[in-house]
Structures are given as C-alpha cells and as structure tokens.
Amino acid sequence: MSTIANKILTDNLKTRTLKNKAFKSLVVALSVITILPIILIIYKLIAKGIKQISFDFILKTPPDTFEAMTALTNGETIPGGIANGITGTLLMVILASVIAIPVGVVTGIYLYENPGKFLANLIRNVSDILQGVPSIVLGLIAYMWIVKPVTNGFSALAGSVSLSIMMLPMIVRSTEETLKMIPQTIKEAALALGVPYYKVIIRVLIPTSFSGLLTGILLGISRVLGETAPLMLTALGSTIINFNVSKPTSAIPLLIWEFYNDPNMVDLIWSSSLLLMAMVLTLNIMSKRIAARTK
C-alpha cells in the first residue's frame, strides 16, 4: 500500500476516533442530566428533612398550628409526627392491593389464555386506556361509587378503591407479560403428567412467574403510594389515627398538602416527603432485585 493512502487512512481513523469520543462524552453528559433531578431531590429532602425524623415523627400525630408556631418562635423542632398519615397510607394501600391483586392477576391470566379473543382485546385496550386516565378522575369515580352510596361520606374504602383502579392496569399487564415468558414446554410438561388445566395455572404457571407478578405488584404499589389528588376526593384526611375503613382517613401525601397550606408547618413537608420517597425507593429497589434474581 502506498504511503499516501496509508496516511489518508490513519488521518481518517484519527478524526473518527475523535468524533467518537466527543459523541460519547455528549451521551454521558446528557445521561447525567437525566439522573440529576433525582440526586438533587434526594439531597434536598435529606438536608431539610432529616432533622425532623425521630420516633415521635413516626408515632405521633401532627401538632396544631399554635404548637408549631410556639416551637418555631422558640427555635425548636416542630413537635409531633405523621402517624395518622403513615397508618392511613398503609391501610389504604393494603386494602387497594387486596382489591387489585386478585382481580388484576385473574384478568391477566384470562388475557394470556385467550390472546385472540374479542373480549380479551377489549379488556387489554380498556386497561391501557385506564392507565392513562388522570388520577383525579379516578378519585371522582370512587367518589360517585363509594363516598355517596356506600360509606355515606369520605372514607378510607373510597380512597382504596380509587388507588386499586390505578394499580389494576399495571398488574394486569405484568401478569400477562410474565406468563407469556414461560416456555410452552413447561406447560406441556405438566399437562403430560395428567394435571388438569386449572391446576397447571395455579400450581405451575403462577409459581413459575411469581417473581414477575411480584415485581408488577410492587411497582403498582409504589405508583399509588404518593397519589394525592384522588385521595382528596375520597379519603379526605383526618387529624387522628383511623383504622375504620368507612371513616375519613389521612395519608402521607394528604398531610404534605396540608402542611404546605399552613405557614407554621412548612418544615414538616420535607421530613414527610423524605419518608414517602424512602418508601417508594425501597419498593422500586426491591422489585428491581426480584426481577434481576430471576433472570
């Protein structure tokens, strides 16, 4: 090969590697921008919220605005906590899961079993649409279905129903998708042992896809954990710890909204948000680990 041709080739190679490097740096820079908000959020929440976190914060209900003001003027941390919000969130999320998990998993199994059927396609599309319905509209629906006719007033049940409708599409989808990943051969192995079809589903398909189902459920829960709008129209909020599903109930995001509206309580926003964020992150990480372990 001539030396000139050689030089052109190496020059080309040099500019190419240079371009490659520039492009790679750009990609890295842009990617960092994506994770920047979450880092800033976590930093801010910890910086402003950690000093408020204590046993009292988890075990006590919020102070009234006068107590908070007194503490502020004395330069003390605000007394009390968000126990009513924590218990309310747990109550409503658990109840919502109790409603959404069985319905969602059974629907997902139906979609998996009848892929081409008209009803299955309809359900799949409606479920997709449901995923896009604004959460406040779901709150409105739960208000119409539960608050007025069933519990005769704002209630934890109504809150749970609105949250369960939000969780449903995610659980349906993840159930169908995980079942689809099970090789047909596993199903055949069970059928060839004379196992009746419904038992194949319950005793082979569900256990085999269990971690996938769990991942979908955990993501669904973490999705509704911070929902505020639908709860405003359904659970309303409460200053006391309440375990009665037919009574108004507080929740962490509801409290954050209330604190925001009271100048004396503003400090509690940060610690409450920190706790909520920690719960959501924990669920997310748990679901990721479960998903990774089964690959």
Partner: peptide, 30 residues
C-alpha cells in the same frame, strides 16, 4: 397420562421445583 408418559424435545423440568420434587411432580401436582 400416567400409563403413557411423555418426554419432549427440549428438557423441561419445572424451574421452581427441586430435583426431588421434579421426579414426583406427577403425584404432587395432581
């Protein structure tokens, strides 16, 4: 299917079961 056992092209042990449970899967699952 107890009288006529079947073996497939691709090995298909039940992935969630132990070796022991795989062997007696026919009894267990039924």
């Amino acid at each position: 299917r107890r009288m006529a056992g079947m073996v497939f092209q691709h090995p298909n042990p039940f992935p969630t079961m132990s070796i022991y449970d795989n062997v007696i899967a026919g009894y267990k699952l039924n």
